[in-house]
Design a protein around this nucleic acid. Structure first.
Lengths: 213, 213
DNA sequence: TAGATTGTTAATCGATTAACAATC
DNA sequence: TAGATTGTTAATCGATTAACAATC
């Protein structure tokens, strides 16, 4: 078995930040950038930047730095941002609507192909170019449209059931906003982004900061 | 200086999950729970649970496990969830609305005290019991209402400026949804929850999963 | 050339996992 | 008592930081 090098999770988070800085530099027409400059823009040590980049095909020149365009291409490739991937949202409440209306999709290479809801009142209403579909259409649609990823924006009580349905319909990745732990086969990618957890973490960190004094 | 023990970030995330499991057990009227049961419910090893709990005043009895109510109180105390803290949202677009309408606040001990926006069209409109206020009111309101935390739900281009304003108005913690790195004094707590980053991470993990095969 | 910066290995640090004695 | 489970220390693992040679 080949030993596949893997980006640590911390590294992934930082790389996303590098990408933002790099694209800003690119827009400004700057051709080269040093690890020191990237680090400075983000408030992290330059060695951290170099270590993250090391081993992924980065090519930097001493005294000059890295080629901005090359680094952008490298990171976008690593993250698979340049391939268009079809996604859908399940649950069209406030959160589903907020996500549908945001501009995050294209930036990460996703195309929002469908929106599903269980509420007959909501089904059939239009949102931009999308029409809200019934949950009943999931199986057919996911297969024909080649949907790879589903956003779980349903109540916690329906999260597991919804996730199971999407996976058996053929979806390989889930972005879960329900405050519930979802159990799925290991080869399904689940990224949890429960807002409740974020808020609780914030409460904890605020308290810790206060306790310092 | 006293050496203050700190929860690692990973530990914080797990503790939030424990709390959910514990409160479920509590609703079911179960008095005791073992680390094995908690671990099993979440798919993590029991030793991990015990190690997280160790040193924070947990009291378990061999063969019996931990007292559910005691553990709940312990974690809620650690996270400061039982004290009512005033919060506000800045930016009342789709995301701000989704957050305002969600039920996450009380769970983490926050009370949504105000909503601010810059758009004259939006200012003055009502949302539940809240009226959308003008940004101009921030300084007065934060001080009199004792607002501790602000949600940054404005476009990335306005994030830094908005954050600076909130901090100088007296807010000590920020929950930042803008895909921008905000630079602030060290004693201000910033929790980043940029949705764009989550989506990019998902793209990366999907690709890694595919590459395994 | 001298100085700055990368590439890479080694050392440190912190978190997870293993081991096991204490105890109910 | 025997067995299960906690509490706690030690070992392992992985990520961060330090060090420094290579090189532009």
């Amino acid at each position: 078995m080949d030993k596949v090098k893997r980006l640590s999770r911390a590294s992934v988070v930082r790389m996303e930040l590098y990408l933002e800085v790099l694209e800003q530099f690119q827009r400004d027409g700057i051709k080269n950038i040093t690890s020191t400059e990237i680090g400075h823009a983000l408030g992290i040590p330059s060695v951290n930047v170099r270590q993250d980049l090391f081993g992924w095909g980065s090519v930097g020149r001493p005294k000059v730095g890295y080629d901005v365009a090359h680094l952008v291409k490298l990171i976008r490739g690593l993250f698979d941002l340049d391939r268009e991937k079809a996604a859908c949202i399940v649950g069209f409440g406030n959160l589903g609507r907020a996500l549908a209306g945001s501009n995050i999709w294209s930036r990460a290479g996703y195309r929002l192909a469908a929106v599903f809801d269980a509420d007959p009142e909501v089904i059939g209403t239009e949102f931009g170019e999308l029409k809200v579909r019934s949950i009943a259409e999931v199986f057919g649609f996911v297969k024909t449209a080649g949907v790879e990823m589903a956003v779980i924006a349903v109540p916690a009580s329906a999260a597991q059931e919804t996730a199971d349905m999407m996976v058996s319909a053929g979806v390989r990745a889930l972005w879960n906003f329900a405050p519930a732990k979802i159990q799925l086969p290991e080869d399904i990618v689940v990224e949890n982004q429960s807002l409740a957890w974020g808020l609780i973490t914030l409460s904890h960190r605020s308290k810790s900061e206060k306790d310092k004094k």
